[in-house]
């Protein structure tokens, strides 16, 4: 299954990059969600995948019974999901504020900080 997941990760990366390069900022956000999913899968798959054996120690035992799923990447992914959500929410708020104050979601038109007219002339004066 690692092979399938590796290819899925590749696909998720490809679509995420394609979406993030779009002019519309909402598409960029969609790409961000896909990218964070892909990244989580990368961590998860790098720890190898063991089917149907959660990382639990049975009651009465001191150590796990037989081969179980790798717990380390799971712990990393779990927090990454929550943080990814925080990042997404923040980006969404940012996008909305940008839309509200600039009236557009086209990232090419968002040029308050770096206006298209050359600021060079002013700087020289």
């Amino acid at each position: 299954m690692e092979i399938v997941v590796s290819i899925l990760i590749g696909l998720l990366f490809a679509t995420a990059v394609y979406l993030m390069l779009a002019r519309n900022f909402l598409r960029f956000l969609f790409g961000l969600i896909l990218l964070s999913n892909a990244a989580n899968l990368v961590i998860f798959a790098a720890g190898r995948m063991t089917e149907g054996a959660p990382a639990l120690i049975p009651y009465g035992a001191l150590t796990p019974d037989g081969e179980i799923a790798n717990a380390l990447p799971q712990a990393l992914v779990l927090t990454a999901i929550v943080i990814g959500f925080g990042l997404f929410a923040f980006a969404l708020v940012l996008a909305f504020q940008a839309y509200r104050s600039l009236g557009t979601l086209d990232s090419d038109e968002m040029r308050v900080a770096e206006p298209r007219e050359e600021i060079a002339g002013e700087a020289r004066e």
Partner: peptide
């Protein structure tokens, strides 16, 4: 997590 996520969503709901 409870407070952080809830405040994010409530804020968005109220402000937007």
């Amino acid at each position: 997590v409870f407070g952080g996520i809830l405040s994010l969503i409530l804020m968005l709901e109220e402000e937007l």
